[in-house]
Design a protein around this nucleic acid. Structure first.
Lengths: 205, 205
DNA sequence: AGAACAGTATTGTGGAACAATAAAGGGGGC
DNA sequence: GCCCCCTTTATTGTTCCACAATACTGTTCT
């Protein structure tokens, strides 16, 4: 599954033993989540982010991650929320220890799900998975990024359990900025950088 | 078209002279934009926001409207962007003058489209229409709200043409807060308010 | 009145057919 | 040899039909 790859619906239908109809609906759901690009009369292609669009995604992610973290910190209730959050963190640690990418992805999803559940904002729960963050995770999957993420997630979690909304929001913004910096460095190394210094356009700290 | 109304796909197919399939795909697109609620084995219902969820939508809207305004202010170029933005503002004025709801909706959409175009953030262009703001506009359509909106939009536009990112973001946040206040008052009048004081959970000023 | 039950309405899904469009390949003209 | 146009092919867009699975409704029995 490489970015830009085209998915022919007849093939998928045959492959999964389902009707073309189901394939089309699945594609629409994936398009809504930003996984595939859908243009009329063309096969759906799994989404590819050029450097510019990558940073655009990060700007949106910064805004909504900050909101998610802040909202979770406001609504955190140790009684109900401590266990699931701690479970997510433990799984992140475990995934990093055994160094398995698939398990790490699962743990990351669990962490964000916990964050969104704690916050309780249904609209955010609906919108958040539509951000192209998944694509970034998949496209720039490095061990370095995983380490940074675990540390950042811990900072967010601590601010949340400490019921510190502004700290949580800031930790969320900081996390996205860390990801941005790592990607900038990776792009500079590979020389595919068009705008050498691309600054964040979200709330400065 | 009243909130909660159920849409039977057979009826719609017959009504619009299209196949059930097309209706289903259209429903999925509407669900992605947050217009209808879609639960398995049940007819799609046009989305209804209870007071709580209304405020949750506003929290998300505040974050993304702020980002949209800030990004537009950063990328504003008088040469290319002055004309479309001014056209949108003129249409808003005209719509308010003749006091037509349909025209006002169209003008509002145009304003946001201009904002998103100026900013140039493709991910934001993709995500923004998915916010349930439409539903709020439809559900709380009052003359008072229209007036507030025109004033707020003007403030945003001025900050944008002045290339003042922080001012634009603040104007965006302020706009959403104004809408929030009007809705709180409306709910208090109608007595359907559960949590009497529901504070914004986005960035304070 | 309340609960189990049958019948109906509606969605979920597969399959076939055809039109419409886009991509690819081939044949002429320069 | 290279480019343009045309034909051919592959793929999507859409409709129709059929049937299974599920939710809704109304009725009957206790």
């Amino acid at each position: 599954m490489v970015p830009g790859q085209r998915l022919i619906e007849t093939d998928l239908a045959a492959c999964f033993q389902v009707g073309r109809n189901a394939v089309r609906e699945a594609m629409q759901k994936l398009a809504a989540r930003g996984v595939v690009d859908l243009s009329p009369h063309r096969s759906p292609a799994i989404r590819r982010l050029d450097p510019d669009e990558t940073f655009e995604v990060l700007d949106v992610a910064s805004a909504l991650t900050g909101l998610a973290a802040r909202t979770a910190a406001i609504h955190f209730d140790a009684q109900r929320h401590d266990t699931p959050l701690r479970a997510a963190m433990d799984m992140l640690d475990e995934a990093q220890r055994v160094d398995e990418a698939a398990m790490f992805s699962q743990a990351r999803r669990r962490f964000y799900r916990a964050l969104l559940t704690i916050g309780g904002n249904r609209e955010l729960q609906r919108i958040f998975p539509a951000i192209g963050m998944h694509i970034i995770y998949a496209q720039y999957q490095t061990r370095q990024l995983r380490g940074i993420r675990v540390a950042d997630y811990r900072a967010i979690a601590e601010a949340v359990v400490g019921s510190n909304p502004e700290g949580a929001a800031e930790a969320g913004h900081a996390h996205v900025e860390h990801v941005r910096r790592v990607i900038i460095e990776a792009l500079e190394r590979s020389g595919s950088m068009v705008h050498p210094e691309r600054k964040a356009q979200g709330e400065g700290s």
